[in-house]
Design a protein around this nucleic acid. Structure first.
Lengths: 231, 231
DNA sequence: TATTATACAGTCCGGACTGTATGTAAATTA
DNA sequence: TAATTTACATACAGTCCGGACTGTATAATA
């Protein structure tokens, strides 16, 4: 008797519907996959290691995902859902800040880019250089995230009069800067240097755009945001 | 008889010294390794595929590099030497430009970050998140590149009076921005957007630092730069 | 309740990869 | 030129991965 059987048997009287079982199993597998991507990398995330991490059998995985690519692609979507939520929380948190630019970039760093979630994303990003299907999935994913981020930017910020600045372009710059910092963080090895870069950017951008006066509400959020994982 | 034996036999009268043979073989292996890292990724760069790409036998590789890590580490150093040269060429090329900032960032993008060389570096960078030895090697590598880049920056640029800007910090920002663009370029999939980001940064930075007047000579270059690969 | 479909468990197989061991040719040295 | 070291070639051993396959229990359905 395997550990998993014992674990299931540990809840004796519980009767679960098929959909419940499937969803729970998928969630476990996806969580384990994302965790493994962040910790073991793309190549290190073998099916065997993932099912071991999830504490389920090989058969369970193959039942829900016919091959590895299917699991990875679903994990990518799961990653996007998590990004949505984290981004929503970030946008909500800066609504009441005074120095909104610095608050935003630091919140983005702490809650989005300096996280295991983003490390997992990075692994997929690099792997997608040699996997067109994955690349297309990430491309759409990025586009959808930008689709909620950019309206929020418009909601919060306006170009400084006469500067000719473009807030959207500036925030794309920010995201590239954060991405660059994230992939190099472990060789930079200097938290204060990273922190200084975040401050530097917010100061620079602060002379090119201002937070709109009187805006204290978060931007309108797409309905899809808080929808649970599956139906 | 293998392809390699035939290839060697193709130069009948040639007698080479041992050192020549070793160096030539090492060069072939390193070139193939870097090429493979860029094209097939870290995990895809197996020893078998590398020797196949180099057109040499498995035994040759094992003779020069006892294990995979040794080959990878030497490839990393080779990568650094190439970066040195490319960087030297870039710094030399901007010496005579008028809009030196824009010329510099675009030259860095074209000659350093948007290259197979940097793609190989990225693979090592990501892999080094789970390989402390490789991470340390890359850390030193980065430090040495910065050690030639930052004096050059001081040589070419000065902070705009009263701006309180720090050119070194600004160029670190630039390198992070370029790194972020590089890892995402294939999902951004929009050359003009990348180009716009380069221009945007040079405009921003242009208000914070100026090219020193009258400087038309390249910065002093470390002696190590043009030294051939091995001795 | 009987039947069927779904969810899950465990095992096997072909292939690929790394490291090793052994054999041969070329170059250096005595 | 003989001996020895260096450079390279080939074959093999052990491990692991992904996919296929078979068997069992649980839920849905008739």
């Amino acid at each position: 008797m395997s550990a998993q059987s014992a674990l299931n048997a540990a809840k004796p009287g519980v009767r679960r519907t098929q959909a419940e079982r499937s969803n729970a199993m998928r969630r476990r597998l996806l969580a384990a996959t994302v965790e493994s991507l962040a910790e073991e990398g793309y190549a290190g995330s073998t099916l065997s290691s993932i099912v071991r991490r999830a504490g389920v059998s090989r058969g369970a995985q193959v039942h829900h995902y016919p091959n590895k690519q299917a699991l990875i692609l679903d994990a990518a979507e799961d990653l996007m859902r998590r990004s949505y939520r984290a981004l929503g929380a970030v946008l909500l948190s800066v609504a009441k800040e005074d120095d909104r630019l610095e608050a935003l970039i630091k919140a983005c760093w702490d809650s989005l880019f300096a996280t295991p979630m983003y490390r997992a994303y990075t692994e997929l990003l690099i792997a997608s250089q040699r996997d067109p299907v994955l690349a297309e999935a990430l491309r759409q994913m990025l586009q959808r995230v930008r689709g909620v981020f950019e309206p929020a930017v418009e909601h919060y910020f306006e170009p400084a009069p006469g500067s000719g600045a473009n807030p959207k372009a500036l925030f794309l710059q920010m995201s590239c800067l954060l991405a660059g910092l994230a992939v190099q963080a472990h060789v930079i090895q200097n938290p204060s240097l990273i922190h200084a870069q975040l401050t530097l950017w917010s100061k620079q951008a602060g002379s090119l755009m201002y937070a709109r006066k009187g805006v204290r509400t978060p931007p309108p959020r797409p309905a899809a945001w808080d929808r649970p994982a599956r139906g």
